[in-house]
Simulated scan of single mutants.
Amino acid sequence: MKGKKILITGGTGQVARPVAEALAEHNEVWCIGRFGAPGVERELNDRGITTRQWDMADHSEEALKGVPEDFTHVLHSAVHRGEDGDFNATAEMNAVATGRLMVHSRTAEAFLFVSTGALYARRTLDHPYTEDDPVDASAAWLPAYPMGKLATEGAVRAFARVLGLPTTIARLNIAYGPGSYGGVPMLYFERMLAGHPIAVPLEGQNWCSLLHTDDLVAQVPPLWRAASVPSTLVNWGGDQSVGVSDCIRHIEALTGVRAVLVPSEVTRETYRFDPALRRRLTGPCRVDWRDGIERTLRALYPQHMGHREGTRTA
């Protein structure tokens, strides 16, 4: 993409920051958010990205003051996760902020909303979820989060139709890579380094469709091109099905750091996606998950690379 004017929310996160930095080379990119981490706004500015303060909790007419309205493309990945467990506040904040954002950018060529695969009603651990599978927005590990995403999906569908704004709703799987904190696999590695247990299912293992940063960045323009009215809905994950326990064992083999895997009734549930629709829209992924994990570890934890040890369970 070249010569476009792009608005990105959540621009300091695992998903949106690498997209913003990649697109800023040949486009005018704006990022809006709270920029709570020290120095992060300056880092974005140094990459040629224009920033403005935006708080999703501010539902006033002034919330987007100073932000232009003539963007050609919008990537909305900012989210209030609802860690406090307040379901009503989570739904209100996410849905209203997103509606106002869509109205503000209603002349855009395409609007991309980043939703989550955690919406799906749990079936078998290795079930390949398609876009037509039922949802229940239930997640024991963070209950308000998927509910807030589902509420926002409803707002996005409505505003896309009312405004005639071509939109894609992309239900994200697990994004990972050397940017930011590295994604969920690196959260597991942090627990391994601290000697903390990692909850795994009582039987079998959770499955996911890991999406490396390189593939994620490459797939954003095709997802914009797929935007439509009514909204296009697509599962956004990698091509490969990955067992979470297998991923942790791979990290062990690369680093020599042991994982304490503890069977539990409550785990950080993940979902395996059927990639057929996404592949038709974006083409295939290029990064093998094993290579991607190794590259991420080498970038973020070089001091732990080069060891070979086995698995310890408890």
Results as ranks from 00 to 15, higher is better:
residue 185 P to T: 10
residue 143 P to D: 01
residue 126 D to R: 12
residue 112 L to E: 03
residue 142 L to I: 13
residue 105 S to W: 03
residue 115 S to P: 06
residue 125 L to F: 06
residue 140 A to K: 12
residue 136 D to L: 13
residue 156 V to L: 13
residue 130 T to V: 14
residue 130 T to Y: 03
residue 175 A to E: 08
residue 113 F to A: 09
residue 153 E to Q: 13
residue 124 T to A: 15
residue 152 T to L: 08
residue 180 S to V: 09
residue 190 E to T: 15
residue 107 T to Q: 15
residue 181 Y to R: 09
residue 163 L to M: 13
residue 109 E to L: 14
residue 203 E to Y: 07
residue 182 G to R: 05
residue 191 R to T: 01
residue 171 R to Y: 02
residue 201 P to L: 02
residue 141 W to T: 06
residue 162 V to F: 14
residue 131 E to D: 06
residue 153 E to C: 09
residue 110 A to V: 04
residue 151 A to I: 05
residue 209 S to E: 08
residue 144 A to L: 07
residue 146 P to G: 04
residue 202 L to C: 04
residue 194 A to F: 02
residue 169 I to M: 12
residue 111 F to Q: 03
residue 149 K to S: 03
residue 141 W to G: 02
residue 200 V to G: 10
residue 204 G to S: 04
residue 154 G to Y: 05
residue 191 R to Q: 10
residue 203 E to K: 11
residue 177 G to K: 07
residue 160 A to P: 05
residue 146 P to H: 12
residue 179 G to Y: 12
residue 189 F to A: 10
residue 141 W to Q: 08
residue 124 T to E: 15
residue 193 L to Y: 06
residue 173 N to Q: 10
residue 201 P to E: 08
residue 129 Y to D: 04
residue 181 Y to H: 14
residue 181 Y to F: 14
residue 190 E to W: 07
residue 109 E to F: 05
residue 170 A to G: 11
residue 174 I to W: 06
residue 155 A to S: 09
residue 130 T to D: 13
residue 120 Y to C: 10
residue 177 G to T: 13
residue 118 A to V: 00
residue 152 T to R: 07
residue 189 F to N: 11
residue 198 I to H: 04
residue 140 A to I: 07
residue 138 S to N: 04
residue 137 A to R: 08
residue 167 T to K: 06
residue 133 D to E: 11
residue 127 H to E: 11
residue 127 H to Y: 14
residue 166 P to M: 07
residue 148 G to Y: 04
residue 185 P to W: 06
residue 174 I to T: 14
residue 163 L to P: 10
residue 175 A to W: 02
residue 140 A to W: 06
residue 109 E to D: 15
residue 174 I to E: 08
residue 137 A to K: 02
residue 197 P to I: 02
residue 208 C to P: 00
residue 195 G to H: 04
residue 130 T to R: 13
residue 131 E to V: 06
residue 143 P to N: 05
residue 178 P to V: 02
residue 163 L to R: 10
residue 167 T to I: 13
residue 184 V to T: 11
residue 201 P to A: 07
residue 148 G to I: 07
residue 148 G to L: 04
residue 125 L to V: 03
residue 174 I to D: 08
residue 189 F to D: 12
residue 137 A to P: 11
residue 112 L to G: 02
residue 185 P to A: 12
residue 207 W to Q: 12
residue 162 V to Y: 13
residue 105 S to T: 15
residue 150 L to M: 14
residue 113 F to H: 15
residue 147 M to Y: 12
residue 163 L to N: 12
residue 209 S to K: 07
residue 111 F to N: 03
residue 162 V to G: 06
residue 158 A to V: 12
residue 170 A to L: 05
residue 153 E to I: 12
residue 162 V to P: 01
residue 144 A to P: 06
residue 162 V to M: 14
residue 134 P to H: 05
residue 133 D to M: 00
residue 203 E to S: 12
residue 192 M to C: 05
residue 119 L to N: 11
